[in-house]
Design a protein around this nucleic acid. Structure first.
Length: 308
DNA sequence: GCCAGCCTGTTG
DNA sequence: CAACAGGCTGGC
């Protein structure tokens, strides 16, 4: 389900609610969906903030202040000394890592709301005397939630090998050009779907970016001109920013952490529009499988895209 | 690289 | 009934 704009929207929707919450319990309703590889005690941690890398959502938790009198100082530099001296047994930080894969949802649920089908994990938090329930639902059960001592989440291969954030000011067309030149004979679509090349693009935003850049997904990555690469780099950033601005794409059943739909589905130019007329020319959009994924493109606006 | 496999639900 | 679905992994 979720690509970078959807995960970013979920992060932003949950962060204000969860920041400062104390984790009271983790109820695992379906074994295998929530993993705690180092058997860290999950109770009593405080949510510091939510972060995102590619399509991964990171929940950063810290030890509650020892001092009962106030909120404590979470930025106390001495706190970090603990992680060096005792990394796993009594870590100074805890990181929850969520990957929603195709159909995962992370939602706050009202206390009186009945548990919906396909709920696999329930996290119970408290803040200022109120209870907040965060549930993980996932029809297909491809997604996962892991807990690690802070820093140890690099044990996840997919997270450790992620490429650059496409919306970072440090990601330039030249970086994309360099990545493409490393896979000269692969289709541009396959390379953009590769999370080690750039983090967070999936089937929707790759097709949308390629259409806006006027490039066929079948083009070999090594054959793009510098100008075409610059246009693609720009299109990727433009599409991702626009989609975040719309709260993501609710094409099927994506919702943010508060159960709100996004509206970028109304801005899609090609994804889901196979057989329909192109929005920029009179041609009919074609569908074919590229890099193992259903791919929609315009045979006129994206030259060299033909039916099989 | 490609492709099956992981799962269930929806659509043609 | 078969095909397909927003993703990733591991085996050729």
């Amino acid at each position: 389900m979720p690509e970078l704009p959807e995960v970013e929207t979920i992060r932003a929707s949950l962060a204000p609610l969860l920041a400062g919450c104390r984790l009271e319990s983790v109820e695992i309703l379906t074994p295998g969906v929530c993993l705690n590889p180092e058997q860290v005690d999950l109770k009593g941690w405080l949510v510091q903030n939510l972060d995102r890398r590619g399509k991964y959502l990171l929940i950063n938790l810290v030890r509650p202040p020892v001092n009962e009198s106030g909120q404590g100082d979470l930025s106390d530099p001495g706190r970090h000394m603990l992680s060096d001296s005792n990394p796993a047994g009594n870590p100074a930080g805890l990181t929850g890592v969520v990957h929603l894969r195709m159909t995962g949802k992370l939602l706050v649920q009202a206390e009186d709301e009945p548990l919906r089908p396909h709920t696999h994990i329930r996290l119970v938090f408290t803040k200022d005397g109120t209870t907040i329930r965060l549930v993980y639902q996932d029809v297909r059960r491809f997604g996962r939630l892991w807990f690690f001592p802070a820093g140890h989440e690099k044990a996840l291969h997919g997270l450790a090998t992620l490429g650059p954030e496409p919306l970072s000011s440090h990601w330039h067309a030249a970086d994309l050009q360099r990545a493409l030149s490393r896979h000269p004979k692969a289709s541009i679509k396959a390379v953009l779907l590769d999370q080690t090349v750039v983090a967070g693009l999936g089937n929707i935003y790759v097709d949308e970016s390629l259409f806006r850049a006027g490039l066929s997904p079948l083009r070999m990555a090594g054959n793009l001109t510098a100008q075409e690469t610059a246009g693609l780099h720009h299109a990727i950033r433009h599409v991702l920013r626009a989609a975040i601005g719309c709260g993501g794409t609710s094409f099927r059943d994506y919702v943010d952490g508060l159960n709100n739909k996004g509206h970028f589905q109304y801005e899609l130019l090609v994804y889901g529009r196979g057989g329909l007329t192109c929005k920029k020319c009179p041609a009919i959009l074609l569908r074919r499988v590229v890099a193992g994924r259903g791919t929609i493109s315009c045979p006129h606006c994206q030259p060299d895209f033909t039916a099989d």
